[in-house]
Design a protein around this nucleic acid. Structure first.
Lengths: 204, 204
DNA sequence: CCCTTTTCACCTAGGTGGTAAGAT
DNA sequence: ATCTTACCACCTAGGTGAAAAGGG
């Protein structure tokens, strides 16, 4: 009934307003962010390795990720990124639904919510559902916890039924090839699939 | 409302009574069945490669698979299977929910419904959710299309809300090692992961 | 003797950055 | 000159039956 769909003090539905989230692998994200994170975009789509942990209970809902563009074009000169004019026109942003969606809150709590199936592409005509980005532009990942409202006129309450999270340390630059060699080295050191490019002695 | 949940002539909810299904790779299943299909069970769990196609429209529901034991123990002697006494006592049968469940009918129709994540084990203490079988016993795979009834007292109508399918050509014997060498050869010829054991010239 | 378990080489499938060639 | 693409060797991850060892 209507009474049970009351709003919390934030103007959000009570089912989502207490949702919380923390970033998994936060120290690694910070290490990348200090150097200026770069993410490869290809025509076919490449992974991102995004992780997050939700602390949501009792919500029957969806979790989805979006990448919000930051409004500037960049260039990499003498080891640093510089703003280089207005952002190129962006295609309408795509949304990536977590593959476990929809699921109940207890299910989301059971394990880390990983966005490792999310792929980035620079192909404006992509029809694989990947998220389309402009290379040499900067993005802020965000994700939304959405309560699936069973009411028939649920569109009217859409603004109450989600709660959003973003972690500044996950901002990144979309590139087709790495610009900063220190980013390349950190990727090689931290991604198991790049183990073939490591040369030093591995730690236990 | 209640009127819209009326029953078809079969005594099943109208949402499932028109569901239909056909077996994918039917001719390969028949080829195996003529020889006597065998499926490996291990302690850790092994795949089955079950495929099926549903023809279900407009149903918000689940698809799940069960393996029904046939009540006999078998032995393999001189190239054929013989009944060999009563069936060993079986643990309560487990159910395998298709990982896309729940989903709407249109989603199920979009692609082949494959049970290739279903694994078989002979470990009675298995806690990976695999289906537990007795080796040297025969089984009939079945699957059920289930309408998720939104009514509060939906348990009362459970018997109306599913429709079951089984294909006799998918019956198989659970084994820990292949008994019939012709089954081994047909597995090697038809399973891409066993390509390493093929010796003849491959067909284009 | 019959059946089960363990380990193995050999595959499929797909995620890495490197590299050189291509595009603008 | 700068950015993009296509292909590659090298990984991770995991599905095969073979073979040998183990158990009752």
């Amino acid at each position: 009934g209507w009474a049970s769909e009351g709003l919390g003090s934030s103007g959000k539905n009570r089912r989502v307003c207490h949702a919380a989230a923390r970033l998994e692998m936060g120290s690694l994200w910070e290490e990348f962010n200090r150097l200026g994170t770069e993410m490869i975009v290809t025509k076919a789509g490449r992974d991102t390795g995004e992780d997050g942990t939700t602390e949501m209970l009792g919500v029957r809902g969806r979790i989805l990720a979006v990448l919000s563009p930051l409004p500037c074009r960049y260039a990499f000169h003498s080891s640093s990124w510089l703003a280089a004019g207005r952002a190129d026109p962006a295609a309408p942003g795509r949304v990536h639904f977590h593959p476990d969606s929809p699921a109940k809150g207890a299910q989301w709590m059971r394990q880390i919510v990983s966005f490792d199936k999310l792929k980035l592409t620079n192909n404006l005509l992509d029809d694989n559902g990947h998220i389309i980005l402009n290379s040499m532009h900067r993005y802020q990942p965000r994700f939304h916890v959405v309560f699936v409202d069973p009411r028939r006129d649920s569109e009217r309450f859409a603004h109450q039924n989600f709660k959003s999270f973003s972690f500044p340390e996950t901002q990144f630059m979309a590139v087709t090839a790495y610009q900063n060699h220190r980013i390349t080295q950190l990727k090689i050191a931290s991604n198991p699939f790049a183990k073939g490019f490591r040369d030093g002695d591995p730690e236990p």
